[in-house]
């Protein structure tokens, strides 16, 4: 974990398959949370994993992040990866920019951190203590911390769940902008159907410890917020995750 591949390497992995999970099994006691799950994500794709709470989304994400090991099957992910958690998880005793450099080495760590903080619009707060940040600002620092290592894969575990609706919409814009800039593969886990439609190239629905169904989202950014296509997709997704039973 001490060294990251040279700058050229992650770009090399941005072709072909970025994430491959085959036959993955994870049990907690008697409960089978992931049941021979298969997941394949091509490089640079934005995949949203949708499902009700307790369906194993976070378990899968932790396996992909390397924070947990599977009981069966294999997981292949790029070495250069980053994860954004549900809470910002900032070190309260480090200034904002120091929080961003936690996994960064070399003498240009600080300028790099400052430039990423500028990307998320937090240049002015770089020297602040985390306790003075709002919820949205803290989560933007967490995003900056993930992106600063130039990862090939970014895993997002319901990062905006605790934010208010307006802040969440701003964060969606930010994530889209960051994605254009960094061109990383992104996997976002959420239970929010609107968030999934707003961001995804492909939406996967998790059910019974597996990927139940998939939807490719080919809507323009305009059509993602309103229009018939969006409403149809939304209705389908709600049925599939089991919120409404009607067709």
């Amino acid at each position: 974990m001490t060294s990251r591949p040279a700058a050229a390497a992650p770009h090399g992995t941005r072709e072909g398959v970025s994430v491959l999970a085959e036959d993955v099994v994870r049990r907690f006691g008697d409960r089978v949370v992931l049941d021979h799950l298969r997941l394949e994500i091509p490089a640079s794709e934005f995949v949203v994993l949708l499902g009700p709470s307790g369906c194993g989304k976070t378990t899968l994400l932790r396996l992909l992040a390397g924070l947990d090991q599977p009981d069966g099957g294999t997981v292949t992910v790029p070495r250069a990866r980053a994860i954004v958690f549900q809470g910002a998880r900032l070190l309260p005793w480090q200034r904002v920019w120091q929080n961003v450099t936690i996994g960064l080495y070399g003498h240009d760590a600080k300028p790099t951190a400052l430039s990423v903080l500028a990307e998320v619009g937090l240049s002015a707060r770089a020297g602040a203590w985390p306790k003075t940040l709002s919820g949205g600002e803290a989560q933007r620092v967490a995003l900056a911390r993930a992106l600063v290592s130039d990862p090939a894969l970014v895993l997002l575990d319901e990062p905006f769940a605790a934010l208010d609706a307006i802040t969440r919409l701003r964060m969606h814009d930010l994530v889209r902008a960051l994605r254009r800039q960094h061109n990383a593969t992104m996997l976002l886990v959420t239970h929010d159907v609107d968030e999934a439609i707003a961001l995804a190239d492909r939406i996967m629905i998790m059910r019974d410890g597996r990927i139940g169904s998939e939807h490719r989202v080919e809507l323009s950014s305009q059509d993602r917020t309103r229009g018939l296509g969006r409403e149809e997709l939304r209705a389908d997704l709600l049925v599939e995750i089991g919120v409404s039973s009607g067709g």
Binding site: M1, Q94, I102, A146
Partner: peptide, 24 residues
């Protein structure tokens, strides 16, 4: 949660001690 974050971010053992465990 903070330790997990630092490990996931690629912090070395030494940095974990200096930036996280001791100040914490």
């Amino acid at each position: 949660g903070l330790i997990e974050m630092a490990v996931a971010a690629g912090a070395s053992r030494r940095r974990l001690v200096r930036r996280l465990l001791l100040p914490g």
